[in-house]
Design a protein around this nucleic acid. Structure first.
Lengths: 246, 246
DNA sequence: TATAATTGTGTCAAAATAACACAAAGTTAG
DNA sequence: CTAACTTTGTGTTATTTTGACACAATTATA
């Protein structure tokens, strides 16, 4: 069996951008490093790929270690490979981003890693090329959330329309019209009214919705929604490419 | 200086999906391997990352080696890291895709690598996980071309509307209405009429256009086109998120 | 010079969007 | 207890965009 003798082997790291939403702003789960290298500085959660796992498994392991959660939304983002990106040793980093419901987190896991949720607007400077990673992740999230209903991954199972609107306003940093937003969302037929009301509210309580799991899956995978004639994803006549046009 | 002693170093490969367009169909530049491993089988063009280059540089080098071209559209796609994806030795592959104008190719470079342009519909089975890579690349191209005017990278500098339409029809494997397509494209104000006519045609000769380079750049980078109120990218009132809604 | 293929442009009804108004629900202050 | 205030739910209308379709103009060829 031949081997690739002439070529050099290098370290493969993984870093994960973990997004959360607190009802008002997008948050990042960041680490104040209590270990070397770069002790005392802020960074993303990361680790190295082991020999007995593939990239997705490594990313899931690292995410689980920090949040105590499995089955979060987790998507490969980009691989960073600049020569000096890690001064310790040449390392390429395969970066993932994850969307988690803050309420589901494992406080112990988070505290033991010296991690905390930081408002995206107050993000400290991060080590190495982690700032750039966050930037790329936010851009990807904006693309993704315009084309697919991934935003719901940041919300609790039951949520209100005003909550959903605030989420989209946070993702895109815009103000949206409540009435047009409602019409657009409801036209996807993705939401199921529970009949329950949001107890948290202080004035008129908004209705709680859940997702139609089947329709949700279709919107997630099939972006061919925008060939109305080729899919029966939308029952009505024509439909925009965009899941929601912000 | 600390080092990451405990972790294993592995090979970092790159593979590139090279798309072309011959006026009728999408093409892939594929290699009939005249070297080991997998001699005699079809594969993507690939190579290994060197110690003195970053990922993008390695991708450009590999693309240049095969096509003789610099400055092609080249975008990182995804990193594949399954444990047994390369039976020779554990290797992760950072995959790029490129869009090239077939007319610009370097025949010598291509022939010396035993490469040829294969119609996407007649693609042979490729080695390792290369089929999966092509699938992901096609999906990415479809996303990208719906949101940004990257399709032009596959055309000559001067092109006609019918050519452009055939390109989009090839990318999305659909038939489009000539009149609505024209209206949509022209509304972007991205095309500049040259006054010249396509000499290749056998009946009424279509007009040749070039790109408005400045507007093209804006559409390429700024996907915020879909916040009409936040950019002045579109002079008219509202505008769809999609560069072109197919 | 008629024919056939292709290109360029226009029309119209239907659908989607943006801007906006008002009524109902629920809390709090007087 | 009621007025005031905030928030939610739903409706209207004008404008824009889309999809479906028709006809005239150009050019090589028979």
């Amino acid at each position: 069996m031949a081997a690739y003798l002439a070529n050099s082997r290098i370290l493969v790291a993984l870093d994960i951008i973990i997004f959360g939403f607190d009802g008002e702003s997008l948050k990042l789960l960041l680490i104040k490093r209590n270990f070397e290298p770069q002790l005392g500085k802020w960074s993303l959660m990361g680790g190295f790929m082991n020999e007995d796992e593939n990239l997705n498994e490594a990313a899931e392991r690292i995410l689980y270690t920090l949040t105590g959660l499995h089955n979060n939304y987790l998507e490969q983002l980009h691989t960073f490979g600049d020569i000096d990106r890690d001064p310790v040793e040449r390392t390429i980093s395969v970066v993932y981003y994850s969307l988690v419901n803050i309420a589901d987190q494992d406080i112990n896991a988070i505290e033991s890693h010296n991690a905390s949720w930081i408002d995206l607007h107050n993000k400290p400077k991060l080590i190495f090329d982690h700032d750039q990673m966050v930037e790329v992740a936010l851009q990807r999230l904006r693309y993704k959330a315009a084309l697919h209903p991934v935003g719901f991954e940041l919300l609790p199972e039951k949520f209100t329309l005003p909550q959903l609107q605030k989420l989209y306003e946070a993702i895109y940093d815009v103000k949206l019209d409540r009435r047009n937003f409602s019409r657009k969302i409801m036209s996807t037929e993705l939401l199921i009214a529970t009949g329950e009301k949001d107890s948290g509210s202080v004035t008129k309580k908004a209705q709680l919705f859940t997702l139609d799991a089947e329709k949700y899956q279709k919107y997630l995978v099939g972006y061919y929604s925008f060939f109305p004639e080729l899919t029966e994803m939308t029952s009505h006549s024509s439909k925009n490419l965009t899941f929601i046009s912000i």
